[in-house]
Design a protein around this nucleic acid. Sequence first.
DNA 1: AATTGATGTATTGTCGACAATCGACTTGAC
DNA 2: GTCAAGTCGATTGTCGACAATACATCAATT
Lengths: 233, 233
Amino acid sequence: MDKITEQDGFAPLGREGLVERVARLLSKAIVTGQLTPGTRLSESVVAKQLGTSRAPVREAARLLENSGLVTYHANRGFFVRKFTATELDNLYEFRIVIELAAVRRLIREGLGDTGPALAAQIEELRRLAGPPHDMLTHVEADMQFHRLICNGSGNPRFLRTFEQIALETELTIVLIGKLYEDAHRLAETHVPILEALQSGCEQDAVDAMFYHLDVARTLVTEQFRKLEDESPK
Amino acid sequence: MDKITEQDGFAPLGREGLVERVARLLSKAIVTGQLTPGTRLSESVVAKQLGTSRAPVREAARLLENSGLVTYHANRGFFVRKFTATELDNLYEFRIVIELAAVRRLIREGLGDTGPALAAQIEELRRLAGPPHDMLTHVEADMQFHRLICNGSGNPRFLRTFEQIALETELTIVLIGKLYEDAHRLAETHVPILEALQSGCEQDAVDAMFYHLDVARTLVTEQFRKLEDESPK
DNA sequence: AATTGATGTATTGTCGACAATCGACTTGAC
DNA sequence: GTCAAGTCGATTGTCGACAATACATCAATT
């Protein structure tokens, strides 16, 4: 079994550093929309709210900067990241490059236990399609499917880069407010990818993944442009 | 440990933050080999040497962590990154993915003023081929050629990702101690890439870049394995 | 002798305070 | 009324000190 989540194995449990905890709380607050894009992340305010000093908050903010959730201006502090339609398009283009490369490598290295893991994740997506429809949980499960592929590719750099864009991808999806009209449909769109991967045909797998991501890219970008027009600036 | 001193002479653009200065000094010390892989980066020691407190050093170290030059172990601190042959191979595989994607995009978007910039950079490489043969300067000029391509691609994510792996790439090359036997030859290996880019044929450009990077990958990996055998930890 | 447990030391983790810097506001001249 | 310079308040930048943790050493037990 591959190690993805931090709860399996003997990874220290109470050993989560304060910085990581703050980073997790902040990222959750941002992704869930409690902190809207553009708002300032005052170190002292956050520190006071969490009952810590500014140092851990500052470090956590720098971590989030690498995840693309916040931007940092020298001598001005951290701000929740704002996205433009172009940036969003660039994000998906980049994501496609990374994930297609991961798919190619995964095929060449052999699926291994990534196959069953992907199948199980699709089951999870189907289960989540039923009520209650928690958007964030759903998006995270979707991302987990793609994370499994990057993780199974065998080159840790793909997983690492995926993690760097995973949170901002989640954020943009949540910003838009919907991923698919039908949650059941979303789950099924992952099936062709898995089947192509299991067939062992590299080109089929690449095509399936590209189609999947390209559809998502179009949906997300168009929806975002629509929202941009409704509330210009 | 040698003292890390700041090279005077240039203050790039008005004010540079203390954190950035420390990060620059540290990265230079690592890439030049003053700090060898595996050595501990004691916050207090570095801070004392640079005449600052630990806070900026700590932030700078976290920046370098993103550049892959140092690793961080919770409650143990920062260490200069050690590379294995496999990691190095993964690095080059990843680099190929990124740069090939950048080339594709650059072709589609049109060269613009990237063409002349690339030509000028080749000239710079030729100039540096003459004495004195400063390895680091040479490597940096080589990387600059590739940086220009990522920058010209039009998608900032490619440049951003390139920057994340640029320093560790430089480090591995310097670790090996040589890039090419003949520095003049290195400069010329970039010519086919530029010509293919100017031809406008996407496949030619991709092929040229792939060949270039694949040769480098083989050279570096083999040389590294040789060094690994000589001094097997 | 090997392993376990206790102890000491060095380093990181966190904190609160002060200094430097930026942006907004006020004030004044034209 | 507009613009410029000066001032003020708030926030980040940096610092030194203290607390918590890990590693090494050594003692005690089997």
